[in-house]
């Protein structure tokens, strides 16, 4: 629980979001959905270059909470699966690595639909 871990998470996470915001504001005809997709793909690419895991080790949640981490987790899971089980591991590994998040997202979404109403 060092203070430094919070500072690093805040600064690195904040900077990744600023990059995304600048992409949205300076790009032409981009919607937030486009930027979300772009950054997930960038996360996968950074993972392939071996850059994202060190970033998580450095900044903790500052790198693991923004969406590029989702792309990274897919690549990491695919490579792990491939190393263990070959082709079937490669294909299954991506979702295995992200299964917890996706399951929570789907079920939490369903739960909100059942208990909450849009306020508008």
């Amino acid at each position: 629980m060092t203070l430094m871990s919070f500072v690093l998470a805040f600064v690195v996470g904040g900077l990744i979001c600023v990059l995304a915001q600048l992409t949205l504001d300076l790009g032409t005809n981009l919607t937030p959905a486009h930027v979300m997709v772009l950054f997930v793909v960038l996360g996968a690419v950074a993972s392939g270059l071996g850059l994202y895991e060190p970033l998580i080790e450095f900044a903790g949640a500052g790198a693991s909470v923004p969406l590029p981490a989702f792309g990274h987790a897919l690549v990491k899971g695919m490579l792990k699966g491939a190393a263990e089980k070959g082709l079937s591991g490669l294909l299954a590994g991506g979702l295995t690595g992200t299964a917890l998040g996706l399951t929570v997202a789907i079920l939490a979404g369903l739960a909100m639909a059942l208990v909450a109403r849009p306020k508008g």
Binding site: A9, G13, G14, C17, A61, V65
Partner: peptide, 11 residues
């Protein structure tokens, strides 16, 4: 806001 959310994640 992005930084704050990540700091909560760090907790």
């Amino acid at each position: 806001v992005g930084g704050t959310i990540c700091a909560v994640g760090q907790f």
